[in-house]
Design a binder for these strands. Structure first.
Lengths: 163, 163
DNA sequence: TCCTCCTAGTTGACATGTCAATCATAAAGG
DNA sequence: CCTTTATGATTGACATGTCAACTAGGAGGA
């Protein structure tokens, strides 16, 4: 906001850092998804949903609570739940006191698959991510990521701080 | 590969780092895409393609060279080029010595849009990414990202080093 | 009651990605 | 030449995401 604000264009070093960063994240995400899919038949999206439901009270959540929990848009979740329901991983229970929606519940099959997928998830994260970095690097990545998230969230609300 | 190999499951600290990392990347990517789309009507995918073509000799590339350049699968690029062609951003020139494909060329409109989009791209990257980190953090992110990419690439080829 | 507004969630259209199959041309070998 | 095989690229089916529009039920007030 001060000295650097006079420069509109990132330096080539800064751009290179951006490019490394975003491509690394893409490649990692793709590799993790494909390994998880292959090892357990569960995508990262499926896994987020299953994890949130597993940790929820009674293995069930209202769809908007679930969306908040995993940080998804409602419509994205709605589409995804439809697909998971077709596969028998989740179901819906009518909710007495509010008929606008229902509880999203983990089915027996969903629980079973989640246990399998967790093991695969842990192996994959260890192999592709944790094993690549030492403790200091890992800590550096964690704090930088947290900083970036805070920054993006604050910039998004107050948008158009450009120029 | 040694001490840590006896542990199958990442520690909760390691998992937390993974989660911060991947969510930060997702949020950043989404924020950047949406800001670029809004400011210039060009998505990050479009931008990669336009950038590669702009830097190419004669503003043209064979489709597989372009795919290598930006690290995409062929079919992904093919679909994307189809959409960009419909919008008039790229075209195809028959290639004399090998009739299996064509040169992908930047149209005048494509060049024009690329210039606009570059300005937006720089502003957005600066605002959402570069401004969030100091020089040391940026350098840390760059090296950690490079390390991760190397690791993923080597693990992907030789896959299934699990257990 | 009934009108209005809010909230929960779904839907449809479309952009984007992946995978496997296919097509056309090139290159090699008889 | 004429098969066979390799290469460049597209296609179709389908998974996944986004956005805007819509449905339906709750809540408050005249």
């Amino acid at each position: 906001m001060t000295a650097s604000a006079t420069r509109k264009t990132p330096t080539s070093t800064e751009l290179a850092a951006w490019r490394e960063y975003i491509e690394a994240a893409d490649e990692l995400k793709r590799a993790v998804s494909s390994a998880m899919q292959e090892q357990s038949g569960v995508s990262s999206g499926d896994y987020s949903v299953l994890l949130a439901l597993s940790e929820a009270d009674g293995h069930r959540l209202r769809s908007s609570a679930l969306a908040d929990e995993i940080g998804w848009e409602r419509s994205r979740l709605s589409h995804h739940l439809g697909r998971m329901e077709k596969r028998g991983l989740v179901g819906r229970d009518r909710c007495g006191d509010d008929n606008r929606g229902a509880w999203i519940v983990l089915t027996t099959e969903g629980s079973r698959l989640f246990r399998t997928a967790s093991a695969a998830h842990f192996r994959v994260i260890r192999r592709l991510f944790v094993d690549a970095l030492d403790d200091d690097e890992l800590e550096g990545v964690r704090t930088a990521s947290a900083t970036l998230r805070r920054h993006v969230r604050s910039a998004d609300g107050g948008a158009s701080q450009d120029d």
